[in-house]
Every structure is written in C-alpha cells, then in structure tokens.
Computed example of a mutant assay.
Amino acid sequence: MTTGSTISRQDVLARLRARVAAGRPIVGAGAGTGLSAKCAEAGGVDLLIIWSTPPESSASSGPRRSNACPRSGP
C-alpha cells in the first residue's frame, strides 16, 4: 500500500477476511509517530492503530530509540 492512499471500509474488510480464509494471521501494530507508522507499514502490518500524545509527553526523558527503519524482504 502506498502512504497517503485511501481504501474503503469494504475493501479493508475484504482483504482481512481473505487473509483469515487463507489461514494467514492478521498482524497489527500501534504507532504514535509518523516514523513508527512508516516502519510498521514497511514491515507489512495488516492493521495500523494510530494514537496521538501531547508534545510534552513525546519530549519526556524516556529511552532513546533509533530513527532507522529495518527493511523487510530482500
């Protein structure tokens, strides 16, 4: 799927139902930033849950994370 594209609800449900019918798992991921969402999409997740946090929460002194997205596939 291309970033920024729009898919109808019916198309989403049809894709998920086809995966279930084929015996394939549905993989979901959560993201709070655009970078996380891009990495999850690149990794091939089926469902992407987005949440929004206030900037001061994002700027807390929690653990630092790498900005590199691991590539999937060859």
Rank of each mutant, 00 (worst) to 15 (best):
1 M>T: 13
1 M>C: 06
2 T>S: 10
4 G>W: 01
5 S>P: 01
5 S>E: 07
5 S>H: 05
5 S>C: 03
6 T>A: 14
6 T>M: 10
6 T>W: 11
7 I>C: 02
7 I>N: 02
7 I>Q: 11
8 S>D: 02
9 R>I: 06
10 Q>L: 11
10 Q>T: 15
11 D>G: 05
11 D>L: 07
11 D>P: 09
12 V>Q: 06
12 V>L: 15
12 V>N: 10
13 L>R: 10
13 L>V: 13
14 A>S: 12
14 A>T: 11
15 R>V: 00
15 R>Y: 09
16 L>E: 06
16 L>P: 04
16 L>C: 06
16 L>Y: 09
17 R>K: 15
18 A>Q: 12
18 A>H: 04
18 A>R: 11
18 A>K: 12
19 R>Q: 14
19 R>W: 00
20 V>T: 12
20 V>G: 01
22 A>I: 00
22 A>E: 00
22 A>D: 00
23 G>E: 03
24 R>I: 00
24 R>K: 12
24 R>Y: 00
25 P>V: 03
25 P>F: 02
25 P>S: 04
26 I>Y: 07
26 I>W: 04
26 I>S: 05
27 V>M: 05
27 V>C: 08
28 G>F: 06
28 G>W: 06
28 G>D: 01
28 G>Y: 03
29 A>E: 05
29 A>V: 03
29 A>N: 05
30 G>R: 05
31 A>W: 01
31 A>R: 03
31 A>E: 05
31 A>S: 12
32 G>H: 08
32 G>C: 08
33 T>E: 03
34 G>C: 05
37 A>M: 06
38 K>G: 07
38 K>I: 02
39 C>A: 07
39 C>H: 03
40 A>Q: 04
40 A>C: 12
41 E>Q: 10
41 E>T: 05
41 E>F: 02
42 A>V: 05
42 A>S: 11
42 A>H: 07
42 A>C: 06
42 A>Y: 04
43 G>A: 15
44 G>D: 08
44 G>V: 14
44 G>F: 09
45 V>M: 06
46 D>T: 07
47 L>M: 12
47 L>V: 15
47 L>D: 04
49 I>Y: 13
50 I>Y: 10
50 I>M: 14
50 I>H: 07
50 I>A: 14
51 W>Q: 12
51 W>T: 14
52 S>D: 14
52 S>A: 14
52 S>Y: 09
52 S>I: 10
53 T>G: 08
53 T>D: 09
53 T>C: 08
53 T>I: 15
54 P>N: 10
54 P>S: 14
54 P>C: 03
54 P>D: 13
55 P>C: 03
56 E>A: 13
57 S>P: 00
57 S>G: 00
58 S>L: 15
58 S>C: 02
58 S>G: 15
59 A>L: 13
60 S>E: 14
60 S>N: 08
60 S>Y: 13
60 S>H: 14
61 S>Y: 03
61 S>Q: 11
61 S>F: 10
62 G>D: 02
62 G>I: 04
62 G>Y: 13
63 P>N: 14
63 P>V: 08
63 P>C: 04
63 P>M: 08
64 R>K: 15
64 R>T: 12
65 R>Q: 06
66 S>G: 11
67 N>K: 09
67 N>V: 01
68 A>E: 13
68 A>V: 15
68 A>L: 09
70 P>Q: 08
70 P>H: 12
71 R>I: 11
71 R>T: 15
72 S>M: 08
73 G>Q: 07
73 G>M: 07
74 P>A: 13
74 P>H: 13
